[in-house]
Design a protein around this nucleic acid. Sequence first.
DNA 1: CAAATTCTGGACCGAGTGTTCCGTAAAATT
DNA 2: AATTTTACGGAACACTCGGTCCAGAATTTG
Lengths: 177, 177
Amino acid sequence: MVFWKQGYEGTGVAELCEAMGIAKQSMYDWVGDKRGLYIAAIERYKLTHICGLKGHLTAPGSPLGNLWHCLHAMAEYAKSPDCMGCLLTNAESEFGTSDPEVARLTADIESYIVDQFSQVLDRAKAAGEVPETLDTKAMGGALAVFRNGIMVAGRSGQSASSIDQTIQLIEGLLKAG
Amino acid sequence: MVFWKQGYEGTGVAELCEAMGIAKQSMYDWVGDKRGLYIAAIERYKLTHICGLKGHLTAPGSPLGNLWHCLHAMAEYAKSPDCMGCLLTNAESEFGTSDPEVARLTADIESYIVDQFSQVLDRAKAAGEVPETLDTKAMGGALAVFRNGIMVAGRSGQSASSIDQTIQLIEGLLKAG
DNA sequence: CAAATTCTGGACCGAGTGTTCCGTAAAATT
DNA sequence: AATTTTACGGAACACTCGGTCCAGAATTTG
């Protein structure tokens, strides 16, 4: 949560340990160093926040409805006044490709997101909820890119209307194919 | 350029001064402190990179053509292997709303971008290049959000195809209204 | 040329950084 | 209960951080 809010460079080891409720030495015994803790934080974030996506998208009922629900949940989160964005997006922004291990990790998660979006669109297509012409792979990738944009918008406190309009346009895009 | 590549916390004052070719003391006389330099860097970035947008979008000829050209230029940049993303996007990601002055500055520039996109769409609508039903304000806001997503994608070295597909889908969105 | 201003290199500061060492206390295992 | 393992607190480390002070060099100005 501290890395999430303040970024890697912006957070001190003491701060992190206090937030986790463990002693500094224990952290060093556990993950080696600050960077190791950051990587562990991202992996944990994947489990607690990204993998939950799959659960929502594969819920019983209309695949497209599930996707819409997820998009709206994203929008609601991004509109919340104390939105911290997404740890994954923040990590990509802070590190770019400068740290190969972090880059590989974020790229993996990003492609996981693309897959989840693509697959729900495949199911939606099978159910006749989206046009047959829709390129689900391409749209999955675009949704992941859009997601990053929305998370930046949320973190930087952009207007709620801007975020809502973005979601609405994405929905239009899904209907049109 | 150094702030752009490494972020605020990730960059030392010595590094910055060396890159600018001025002595440390001169920097402190000029902008007061590191944070002042960061703000100056963002303002300079607005002039050299964001305001150029207006020039391209208001070029003679087809407004929609100009917009497409800008989108493609964005995609080309995002696909370049050493892409550093956008300083504005990075600043929003790193600071969020934690620093009120930085937040106000980035929000101003962001709304400037929205305006430029909206206005070119107004002109495109007047020229009959986009559907009469298109909500140019909403689409302008969405394009700004999408831009942030693409910049994150570029900085994190996401696949070229993912970026291309995103641009293609945005173009489809423009045509459909 | 002389005076005033600007710029520069470098020493220096205190505070804070991530990290290591170590002796001890608690917990778990046998 | 004895022993091994794990966790802790805190001192100390080397280092870097942003920032300041100052004297001299360079440049501009009169």
